[in-house]
Design a protein around this nucleic acid. Structure first.
Length: 321
DNA sequence: AAATCGGGCAACCGCGCGCAG
DNA sequence: CCTGCGCGCGGTTGCCCGATT
């Protein structure tokens, strides 16, 4: 049973908006603000548009403070970084880019950034080298979704344009990968620990990749996080512990434990996607509890997190090539 | 100069979530 | 607790326009 239509589609205009329609909508929103979009078409001068269409037009085009110029290099790097962390959560990504909409970011990713990554030999979905993916296909049955730590972007040598493509995001259970990356990841995580804004709450919030891998109970024990771990857990700094624990041993307990509840796990032995998705969900849950949006914004304001600051722990994507 | 192709972007569609009645 | 509705989100489509043949 589908949801009933939000408006009378027979009497609703589709297609590009005219200047007159824009003016009506803008005039209405500037005096009455937004909200109750279903009534906006009528109240904004009998617009023959669906309320949903009005909302979209306003948020993507008419809203004040929107940027309409090209994306900057810094914005590009930020999008790639956040996409590696969050996947296609365009609204979350757009939240970190003032003046950009989720549609802007999504379109830019689909038309430009994903191509750039491919040109550099990086799979835009997994953020891993395509060559490595091809090699791994025959040997690994478990694949993670596009989400993992920023640390994996670290080049083998600092900001070297001649360096091979960055290793990008690790694959669960891919022991050689973790072994090779562990040192680099620890560098970044140490950096995060040292420089991230330290609120009292954050200090006992922990998130570990291993916690989201429900297929290896031994990993949980090795990771050292029992069900009595402090909850909720979330701090980028703890990526170090999680990635180190994963090296060669894989992960551990069901996601339900992360928030202190004994929920059902999200995955079985072949549910790497569910595990990582749960990881992201946990991040989002913690966002709400500790204002992680703000924390991310503050972290990203530090150029060293995404390559603007130089140095061995910075992220350098090298778009120039 | 005309036709074709492809990229970019605005807009639409369908679904999930949360809230109010 | 259930149902209906509004909102927001991600995926997809279709049009426009510049580049190429």
């Amino acid at each position: 049973m589908g949801r009933p239509p939000c408006c009378d589609k027979a009497n609703v205009k589709k297609g590009p908006w005219t200047a007159e329609e824009d003016a009506k909508l803008l005039a209405y929103t500037s005096t009455h603000g937004t909200g109750n979009w279903t009534s906006v078409p009528q109240r904004a001068g009998r617009l023959k548009r669906c309320g949903k269409s009005c909302r979209l037009r306003y948020t993507n085009y008419l809203r004040p403070n929107l940027k309409h110029e090209n994306f900057t290099h810094e914005e590009e790097e930020l999008i790639v970084t956040l996409h590696a962390m969050l996947g296609s959560r365009w609204s979350l990504i757009a939240n970190q880019l003032p003046g950009r909409t989720d549609n802007d970011v999504k379109n830019y990713w689909n038309t430009k950034l994903s191509k750039k990554l491919r040109q550099r030999g990086i799979d835009p979905i997994t953020h891993r080298p395509i060559a490595d993916l091809m090699q791994s296909i025959g040997t690994l049955a478990i694949r993670p979704p596009p989400a993992a730590g920023v640390a994996a972007y670290l080049p083998a040598s600092p900001a070297s344009s001649a360096a091979p493509p960055p290793p990008c995001l690790p694959v669960f259970h891919d022991a050689p990968y973790f072994a090779a990356l562990q040192h680099q990841q620890q560098q970044v995580v140490t950096h995060v620990d040292a420089d991230a804004p330290a609120s009292p709450d954050q200090q006992h919030l922990q998130l570990n990749w291993s916690d989201f891998l429900a297929d290896d109970a031994a990993g949980a024990a090795l990771a050292g996080h029992g069900a009595d771990a402090p909850a909720p857990q979330a701090a980028l700094g703890q990526y170090q512990e999680g990635t180190a624990a994963m090296t060669g041993v894989g992960g551990s307990r069901a996601f339900g434990d992360v928030d202190g509840a004994s929920g059902a796990g999200v995955g079985g032995a072949d549910d790497g996607a569910g595990a990582a998705s749960a990881f992201i969900d946990a991040i989002l849950d913690c966002d709400k509890e500790m204002g992680m949006d703000q924390l991310i914004a503050e972290m990203l304001a530090d150029p060293a997190y995404y390559g603007g600051g130089g140095g061995s722990s910075s992220l350098e994507l090298g778009w120039g090539c």
